[in-house]
Design a protein around this nucleic acid. Structure first.
Lengths: 210, 210
DNA sequence: CACTAAACATGATGATCATCATGCTTGAAT
DNA sequence: ATTCAAGCATGATGATCATCATGTTTAGTG
């Protein structure tokens, strides 16, 4: 039986080994790479961003990339885990009430979220590409699974159907609504999609802001 | 004032000009390029497919591509229009009843559709990439707009809300459900997503086949 | 029959990119 | 102070790709 170490290389944290560069700064750069990658990937897709661009965005050259990650694919997976954690943490801070839920859905289906994919939902920005990239399907699966669980648990749901089923239906509507609102070139139609999907999920007929 | 000709080059159909290769065969090749492109783009994304691959799939070499299309971007737009027309035609053949609607939704959210993106929904396969590619947002917008109209008109909808709004909500759920079912690596979860979204849209609790 | 322009095939070209190679810099442990 | 591997920068390398160049084939037209 073979044990495979799947642990991720985290510079500046090797145990008992000397760190010639300040560990804190190195870890900070590592983090910056992750964050810039997460932003750029969501803005332009995995294949639309080069490693050089990402490194430049963090203020480094392309050289030291492989001191931080083993490959682009690993960076993709790591940046997804990173984004997922932040999204889940944010979700957990929302008031576990009907109002909290509606406000969450409202902000998800807002023009602001539609227009800033780099800071938004990982799934809506990257799902089809993820489907085709074996290396990133696992983090996506973990993320979505955790998100479903958390939404089902955190918010109140009508009791005629299971909370989990309703969470899944809600997420599907949110993702689908955002994805098509982003793809459409007509601002009026795009806004109509956001409003209609929002209305279906919250019963609200007032337009969402920001 | 300048008039810009946006017409698409269609080999074998220039008026009054001699066609040295058989017009019928040339038009057939043109069609084959469109179809292979539409399939490959949906399977692997725009940026995941090279022009060489597409031409090879049609039985030609990469050379004559530019005798048929002005650029990859034009091919992308044309293949989307081509796919859109076929999808709309197919939609129109569906019986305009509750059963027809449910059967349509059922087949959209089936494992078969999930597993064969190359022959499936254009939007679910390509929407995020379309959002980032200026040259293909117009055909997507036309497609979605026509699809909304047709669904709203063709199927019966509860009268407490506008048919159009319900069509939009339904499409959003379908697209979102398919997109996340495809992205997830866990077959059980993927199947659960398909079933739950389907149940929310049709009230059916029986699993979909094919 | 000779001519021609569309359509075809082979083969550049130049750009982009992931990854690797090399040498310099740093600073904690010796 | 010396050492040395992590981390850094510059600069290959080799692959892929969209697009272009060039020559060849084709079948209507004159």
């Amino acid at each position: 039986m073979t044990t495979i170490m799947l642990g991720v290389k985290i510079p500046g944290q090797k145990i008992g080994k000397p760190m010639r560069y300040p560990a804190a700064e190195t870890a900070e750069k590592h983090e910056r790479i992750l964050e810039q990658a997460a932003r750029l990937f969501r803005e332009r897709g995995f294949s639309g961003v080069s490693l050089g661009e990402i490194m430049k965005a963090t203020g480094l050259t392309h050289g030291p990339f492989y001191n931080h990650f083993a490959s682009k694919e690993e960076l993709m997976a790591e940046s997804m885990r990173h984004t997922s954690q932040k999204a889940l943490s944010k979700l957990e801070t929302i008031e576990p009430s009907e109002e909290g839920k509606n406000s969450f859905i409202n902000s998800y289906l807002s023009p602001s979220h539609r227009d800033t994919p780099g800071d938004g939902c990982l799934i809506a920005a990257l799902a089809p590409e993820i489907s085709r990239e074996p290396g990133v399907r696992e983090p996506l699966t973990c993320h979505l699974s955790a998100f479903i669980d958390q939404m089902a648990m955190q918010f109140p749901w009508p009791e005629d159907k299971s909370a989990r089923q309703q969470a899944i239906q809600t997420i599907a509507s949110m993702v689908g609504g955002l994805v098509i609102a982003r793809a459409v070139a007509d601002e009026t139609l795009s806004q109509e999609i956001l409003s209609d999907v929002l209305a279906g999920l919250t019963g609200s007929s007032s337009p969402q802001q920001g």
